[in-house]
Amino acid sequence: MVEIGRHEHRVYEPPRPECAGWQNGVVESSADPAPVAFSGSRLGWRDLPRAVRARIAELAGAEVIAETSATSGFSPGFAAVLELGNGHEIFVKAVSAEQNPVSPELARREITVATALPPEVPAPALLWSDDDGTWVLLGFEAVHGRSPEQPWRAPDVARVLAALGDLAAARPVDPHGLQPIAVALADDFRGWRTISAAAHSTQVDETGRRGERGAWVLEHVDDLAAWESAWPEAALGTALVHGDLRADNVLLDGDRTWLVDWPHATIGAPWLDLAFMLPSVEMQGGGDADALFWAQPVSAGLDPAALRAVLAALAGYFAHSSLQPSPLGIPNLRRFQGAQAEVTLDWIRRLPA
């Protein structure tokens, strides 16, 4: 299990004109390989304060004798499977604001979400948690498996899409503390409206240097803002939405497909996780996002305009976020978001007019 991705570290800072990849909302073309979903830094067991290590051992019920650190995901905190002296294993997350100021609140959110997950959802069980106001600790059932290979292989794509189809039918356990997705992401999913205002105020005239995709964005930035503004109605629904599924938040274990890291869970339309995940699948070589989307039962009868609205909001979030300074301890996140913005825009352009 790993943590954070698309919606973590939602701290607004003004766009930096010199930021590579996007400038004034215009994407720069790049031949670079897909970026890796990993922060490049993570705490080890010995990096934790002695009191935190003692508390984890107390909660786990045995001394810790070995660790296997998670090797994907963006969190700079501690995330590892711990082998215990009693022969058991447990997956532990330990975060504090020192590593990243937003991580503790996300960990607290994951504790809330755990109580809302129905038993049919393939998520590791939360066994215990602890919060002393500085360190937030979570102990999960340890599950094993591998992330989907990259580039994606067709059998892995099929397995994960089947799991998303099952998830689309899930509903949270009542009572729950999950927000409607349109409420939870109201501030995040307005990137094109922000970018459009900035672009018009600075009279961007660098279309020629931005490539064909950039030229299209400049020509359609007002359209993107208008499509984006319609996303709340398009996303309405009562389904359980993970909200942050990518290859690094999936574990394939024999015939079991685990969906992990749930701090961003909300309620909304049942097709949202499919739409949110497919740009990363295409980015990582898994196939055409549009073809994969419409081949799934959950997309049956969906108005393409609703999909366009949600994808515009998603692309705007990625594009605007990629302009911000890197969050503390997560230097690779902005490049990953910029790459997802490119693929999502290309998907939008393939939709019927």
Rank of each mutant, 00 (worst) to 15 (best):
V102D: 15
V121Y: 04
E89I: 00
V102Q: 13
A54F: 01
P124E: 05
E105N: 13
L117Q: 06
L106P: 01
I65S: 11
A57M: 11
N86V: 03
A79G: 12
V113H: 03
S96Q: 03
A57R: 13
P122R: 10
S69A: 15
H88N: 14
E98R: 14
A62L: 02
A125R: 15
I56A: 08
E110M: 05
V81G: 10
I56R: 08
N100L: 06
Q99C: 09
L59S: 09
G87Q: 08
R108T: 07
V113K: 06
L117P: 02
G87F: 05
I65A: 11
V92G: 10
R109E: 13
S69L: 13
A79T: 00
A125L: 08
G87I: 05
S75N: 08
E110T: 07
P119S: 12
K93P: 06
E83R: 15
G85K: 01
L59V: 10
N86H: 09
A79E: 01
E89N: 12
L117T: 07
A80S: 14
P122F: 03
A94H: 05
A107V: 00
I111S: 05
A97I: 04
P104A: 06
F74L: 13
A116H: 06
A79L: 00
P122C: 10
I90D: 04
H88F: 08
E89C: 12
V92Q: 05
L106G: 06
A66Q: 03
E58C: 09
T112W: 01
K93A: 07
E89T: 14
K93L: 07
Q99K: 09
E89W: 07
Q99M: 10
H88V: 05
I65M: 09
R55G: 06
F78D: 07
I90S: 10
A123F: 03
V81P: 02
A97Q: 12
A70K: 02
A66K: 01
S69I: 05
T71L: 12
A125V: 11
L127G: 05
E105K: 10
L59M: 11
A97Y: 04
S103E: 13
A60D: 01
P104V: 05
E120S: 15
K93C: 04
G85A: 15
G87V: 09
P119G: 10
V102E: 14
P118S: 09
L82I: 05
P104S: 08
F91T: 01
V113A: 09
P122S: 14
G61K: 03
V113C: 04
P122A: 14
